[in-house]
Design a protein around this nucleic acid. Structure first.
Lengths: 206, 206
DNA sequence: GCGTGTGAAATGCTTCACAGCG
DNA sequence: CGCTGTGAAGCATTTCACACGC
C-alpha cells in the first residue's frame, strides 16, 4: 500500500530539507525538491500525498513543518536501535558511517565470531562475540540488524535473527535470504550494482 | 528497453549459477533459480527472454551455457577496469570487496586528496593523489568510477569525471548527482536503506 | 509429462494536465 | 498568478496461464 520507492525518496527529501534549513531556506516548492533529488515535481507531490501532509500553499511547503511530518511518518517512536553482525572492513565502514548519521538510528551493538575483534568499542559501538547475539539483542530489544558477514554464514545468521524476534534486516552479504514474512529484508549488493553500471554505461546515449 | 531490474537479477543469477557449478550441478530449472534468488519462476524465464537465450529444455537450462550467455551479455569485452575516489573506511572496504570479486571487474586505481593515503598499494590497488585523476583515468582508459567521498565533494567530482569521459558512476555519497546524459549513475544510499528497513519492519505482517 | 517460452491480464509506478486555493 | 493536490492516462514490470517441444 505504501510504495517502497516513495519511502526511499521521503527519506532522501528529509535529508535535503535539512540542508535547506542549514542554508536558511524556510520554504520549498515541489520543483526545488525535485531538482535536488533528481526527480520530477509531480513525483515529489505524489510522495507527499502518501504522507497525508496537504499543507502546501502558493509559496510551497514550510521546510520545518514538512521535516516534522516526515519524521513522524518515517521514524520509530523513541528512535531506532540497531545491531551489526560482521566486523570486517565493511562492518567498520558501516559503524563509521552511522556513527556520524545522527541520533535517530543508532548502532548500539556489533558482533563477530573472531574473538580478536570483540570486547572493544569501535566508533562508539560495543563489540560482542557471536555467542552473545541472542542475549544482547534481547536486552536492548533490538529489532533491526545489519548483516556484513561472508555469504557462507548469512543464511544461518538470518534464521537465528528471525528466531529471536528481529523484524528487519539490511543485508550486505551478496545472497538473497530466506526469512519468515515477519521479517523485512533489504539487500545491498555492491557487485550487482557495479555490474549494472558497467552494463548501462556501454548503452547510455551521448 | 532493457529493464534495469532484469540486469540486476541476471547479474545475481550468474553468481548463483557459479555456486551451482561448484556443487557439481549441471542443469537448473527456472524454479530452482527462482528459489535461490527469492523470485518467481515466471520472472526468471522473463529475464532470460531478455538474453534471447532460448536453449531451455524439459530438463531446464545447462548451467555452463547459460553462464556463458550471461557473460557475453553482461560483461565488457576484455573486462572492465574501474577506479575508486575516496579512500576512507568505505573506500577501503570497497577495495577489499572487489579485490576478492574476481577478474571481470578490477579496481585498478584509487584516489584521495589526503597525501597520507597516496603512494601506497591497498588490496592490490595503487593509490594516487586527486590531482592525478585526469591523467591516470586517461592512461588506463577508465570509464567507470566509484565515488566514496563526502557529500560536499561529490558533485564537483562528478563533473570532473564527466568532463574526462567517464561513462558510469557508482555513487556511495548520499546525494543525487547532476551529470550529462552520457553518464549512467547508480546511487547506493545506506542511510536511506536503513531507514526503509526501519519503516517497513514496523509494518510487516506476522 | 515436465519445464520452457510467451501472449495476455493484472498490478504498480510515473507523468500529465488541470481545477482550485491562498 | 503560482503552486499545490489529484483524477486520469500512460508506461513499466510482474504474474498468469497455456501451447509447445524434448
Amino acid at each position: 500500500m505504501m510504495p517502497e520507492k516513495s519511502v526511499e525518496r521521503l527519506s532522501l527529501y528529509r535529508r535535503l530539507l535539512g540542508e535547506f534549513a542549514k542554508e536558511g531556506i524556510r520554504t520549498v516548492s515541489s520543483a526545488l525538491l525535485a531538482e535536488r533529488s533528481r526527480g520530477t515535481a509531480a513525483q515529489v507531490r505524489r510522495d507527499l500525498m502518501a504522507l497525508d501532509y496537504r499543507r502546501g500553499s502558493a509559496r510551497g511547503y514550510s521546510v520545518e513543518s514538512l521535516m516534522e511530518a516526515m519524521s513522524v511518518f518515517l521514524d520509530a517512536p523513541g528512535g531506532e536501535r540497531v545491531a551489526l553482525v560482521g566486523i570486517g572492513n565493511l562492518g567498520r565502514a558501516l559503524l563509521d558511517h552511522f556513527d556520524a548519521a545522527g541520533p535517530r538510528i543508532r548502532v548500539v551493538a556489533a558482533f563477530d565470531s573472531d574473538p580478536a575483534k570483540t570486547g572493544r568499542v569501535i566508533h562508539g559501538c560495543r563489540c560482542y562475540g557471536a555467542d552473545e547475539l541472542e542475549t544482547i539483542l534481547g536486552e536492548h530489544s533490538i529489532k533491526i540488524v545489519m548483516i556484513a558477514v561472508p555469504v557462507s554464514e548469512a543464511q544461518r545468521l538470518a534464521e537465528r535473527l528471525a528466531a529471536c524476534g528481529v523484524r528487519g534486516i539490511l543485508n550486505f552479504a551478496p545472497v538473497p535470504l530466506r526469512v519468515p514474512p515477519s521479517v523485512f529484508v533489504e539487500r545491498i549488493d555492491m557487485t550487482v550494482a557495479l555490474e549494472k553500471v558497467s552494463f548501462f554505461s556501454r548503452r547510455a546515449e551521448g
